[in-house]
Nucleic acid binder design. Structure first.
Lengths: 131, 131, 131
DNA sequence: GGCGTTCTAGAATATTCGTGG
DNA sequence: ACCACGAATATTCTAGAACGC
């Protein structure tokens, strides 16, 4: 697993996509883990089922941690937003443990769009940006 | 449960409508619960019949509580007003348990108007509003 | 389960301790759930084992959610700090899923100290604090 | 210097309780 | 007695900050 930002993808071409995004893409695509993380039906978002198992079983295979919270922090750093379903949120919880995230440029079948997903920079006054 | 403003509705398009309003809309529209909550005849208000059953059976499917009072508090937070019936006041109470609420922008057949319904903010001097 | 701040505790005396703190105390004390949440050996902190099971099995019995993240947010709101263990960080994962939190006034055998734990208020200029 | 991981906080809505017109 | 609202806590989603690499 490549950790560098300037890496060779599995397809063999050079890219400037951060490791998190290529790993996320691989994760969502991988049919072996579709029961824990997979594309939504229309391919415009992805679902994580059973956060606990996902965190403990899948995350450490790609990242240096096994915490859902760290995974979510990265998603937000890259501009992903949680998709809220009104089905959730009741006192009664018939639904399975289902978390959904979406990004304008994270679309099934359009891997090249990953290059448009940018990591957010700190909001602290960036002196170096003036020069 | 995030009841955030940036959510995808069940129709799959992005909206800025708070969860309470989309849930309320769904609730009133749902034919399954028309005996407990439904549109008025002309579609300019909605009725709740049998507060007790509505609170215990319907509310917990969408909200994290089963109290009519909490539901009403939210309605007021969003500017809904109770429609007062003349029939009140008699010692006898022949009428069925019927509560009616109304809002200028809550109209049957005009879901897009939900975006005009604004939640009230605290009255405690909002510093950020000055900038 | 009492949710009010001004409630009668199980011991029967009145208190001004927020529901979160009394629930947390009950949770940690309860021997039934010691395998998921319990006091540390010296009683100055508490441990949560197996976040996933704790969140899904224990939290909803006391709170209106089943998310570890919401539980942690409340802990931080009340000034609890995570106790960091040296053992963390290895790629190998010999240790069990163990999360530890501590607060100066959360001490086994001293329930009355809960009254000194204060919830943090918003940082947005609190006008009423000037009067 | 940008990226990754962790812990804590910000901000908006949600739920509860009480009070005043 | 009723209805609208203030205020405090609770829940959720996102961001700040510190640190290491």
């Amino acid at each position: 697993m490549q950790d560098s930002a300037n890496s060779l993808t599995m397809d063999g071409y050079s890219s400037n996509v951060p490791a998190f995004l290529t790993k996320l893409w691989t994760l969502v695509e991988d049919p072996e883990t579709n029961h824990l993380i997979c594309w939504s039906t229309n391919g415009t978002s992805f679902h994580v089922f059973d956060q606990g198992r996902f965190a403990k079983e899948v995350l450490p295979k790609y990242f240096k941690h096994n915490n859902m919270a760290s995974f979510v922090r990265q998603l937000n750093m890259y501009g992903f937003r949680k998709v809220v379903n009104i089905e959730q949120g009741g006192l009664v919880k018939p639904e399975r443990d289902d978390t959904e995230f979406q990004h304008l440029y994270f679309l099934q079948g359009h891997e090249h769009l990953l290059e448009h997903i940018k990591r957010k920079v700190g909001t602290e006054f960036q002196l170096h940006l003036l020069f």
